[in-house]
Computed example of a mutant assay.
Amino acid sequence: MGALALTACQSAGQEHAPTPTGATDAQPAPALAAADGRDYAACADGNCEVLVPGPVTLPLDGRAGFNELVIHRVEGTAIHFDLRGAESGASGSLSMGCISTFHSGGNGSSCSTAPRPAPEPVDGTLAMQLADARDGQVVLRLVSGEPGPPPASLFPRIPVFRPHMPFGDS
């Protein structure tokens, strides 16, 4: 039986550096981008997509009853905020995958683990969504319809009790 010998060959003038353990060919994620960048004044009409790296106040034109959105902090993939208006306000947090909708009669939220498209504009409402989050920053999306009252379908129906009163000859 013969012995098999392996030898490393190297072309003249070429050095081969060892590949570091755990090295990957993955490209770094692109930087976060928002349609309106950091132009927070673009949010005045309740329709914008802005990059939020930390605390900021966004002026609003009173649509859905709110005059400003104050973002107190960005925490991972969530923001903590206050919505302020002349007659009403709201506060809370908003996370990736959720859409919060605010109007003069109240608010609501819906969340999903699947990617979600931008909410549809609804008159008299302000919808908030985080379009992306990374590296301590978020892309905040605001969507509003026309000014005015929200549709009646957003208000809970209050049952009307009508007592039955028998009338008779007595």
Rank of each mutant, 00 (worst) to 15 (best):
D25G: 00
N67A: 11
T24N: 10
G168P: 00
T57R: 14
V56M: 01
G105Y: 09
G106H: 14
V122F: 06
A44Y: 13
A31Y: 00
L58Y: 09
A35I: 02
D36M: 02
C43I: 03
E15M: 03
R162Q: 13
D169F: 10
D82F: 08
T57K: 11
T77G: 12
H72F: 00
S11A: 14
I99C: 01
A131I: 00
G148H: 06
A12F: 08
G148W: 10
R84Y: 09
A152R: 12
I79S: 07
D135C: 00
V70S: 12
R116Y: 04
S88M: 09
C48E: 03
A44C: 03
T125W: 01
I158G: 02
F155E: 13
L83W: 01
G65I: 05
G124F: 04
R38E: 15
N67R: 15
E49W: 01
G145H: 05
T21C: 00
I71R: 01
T57C: 02
P28F: 12
L6W: 13
G65A: 04
L94F: 02
S109H: 08
D25T: 12
V160G: 02
S110G: 14
N107Q: 14
G89E: 10
P159W: 00
D132L: 00
P30C: 10
T57Q: 09
D36Q: 11
L142P: 03
C98N: 05
I71D: 05
T101G: 05
L142C: 07
H80L: 02
P119V: 02
V160P: 00
C48M: 02
P147N: 13
P166N: 11
P159G: 09
P159N: 12
A42S: 13
A33V: 08
G105E: 12
H80N: 11
C98A: 15
S170P: 08
R162W: 03
G168Y: 13
C98M: 09
A90Q: 11
E120Y: 01
A152Q: 15
T57W: 08
T7M: 07
P20Y: 02
D123A: 14
R116M: 13
T113C: 00
D45R: 13
G92W: 04
L126P: 03
E49C: 04
R116H: 01
E75Q: 14
G46T: 04
G168Q: 14
F167A: 11
L142Y: 05
P147R: 10
D135V: 00
G105F: 01
T125M: 04
P163S: 15
